[in-house]
């Protein structure tokens, strides 16, 4: 009983409760059946106990995704908190799966749970990592494409946190555009 009380005292609460989702592509099943909620957490300590017990992203098979979203927001365009939003997209080369992917994803998670985007952190819905044979992708999703100031602030901070060179340009795409076009052809609404 004492240890339960102590645990509550010493755990470090996060600003938001977060939900980790796992997607595994089973083609015989509808998309939504392949998406599972793993768990939710709202302390720094519980984040790490989850992170250290799940497979690294680079070890997942092609077609799998992890998503970390604020609890209550589903990791899909259709969710009312996502549908007017978009994503800052990081596309990686095949070689980067072994050199960079896990570090970039961890940094993305730390940006989210640490509320790295200052007063604009409320605009963040979540982040997704897609493991794909043709090249992996990581993205931070925000709720409203029209909030230009918030979106560009988030993009600038995110790019800096990932340690990307100033020569690298990352783009922000509206989900509404991605949903109607082949994702690789979606045009960037903003770049940083």
């Amino acid at each position: 009983k004492e240890s339960v009380i102590l645990e509550k005292v010493i755990k470090h609460s996060l600003q938001s409760r977060w939900a980790l989702w796992f997607f595994k592509n089973v083609k015989s099943q509808p998309w939504q059946c392949n998406l599972r909620l793993v768990t939710t957490f709202n302390t720094v300590e519980d984040f790490w106990s989850l992170y250290t017990h799940i497979q690294l992203a680079s070890k997942l098979s092609s077609g799998c995704d992890y998503s970390l979203f604020k609890d209550g927001i589903e990791p899909m365009w259709e969710d009312s908190r996502n549908k007017r939003g978009g994503r800052w997209l990081i596309t990686l080369s095949k070689q980067q799966r072994h050199s960079d992917l896990d570090a970039l994803w961890l940094e993305t998670l730390l940006c989210l749970i640490g509320e790295a985007f200052d007063e604009y952190s409320e605009e963040v819905c979540g982040a997704v990592i897609n493991i794909r044979a043709k090249g992996d992708k990581i993205a931070i999703w925000t709720r409203e494409t029209e909030n230009r100031e918030a979106v560009t602030h988030i993009g600038k901070v995110y790019k800096e946190r990932l340690g990307l060179s100033s020569k690298v340009v990352i783009g922000y795409q509206a989900h509404a555009d991605t949903a109607t076009k082949s994702s690789s052809l979606s045009k960037n609404k903003f770049v940083v």
Partner: peptide, 20 residues
């Protein structure tokens, strides 16, 4: 106020033993 944590603070908890 908002609970903001920088990366070094968060990383400091990575290898702490879990509470039992």
């Amino acid at each position: 106020g908002k609970r903001q944590y920088d990366r070094d603070f968060l990383l400091g908890f990575q290898y702490m033993p879990a509470c039992v």
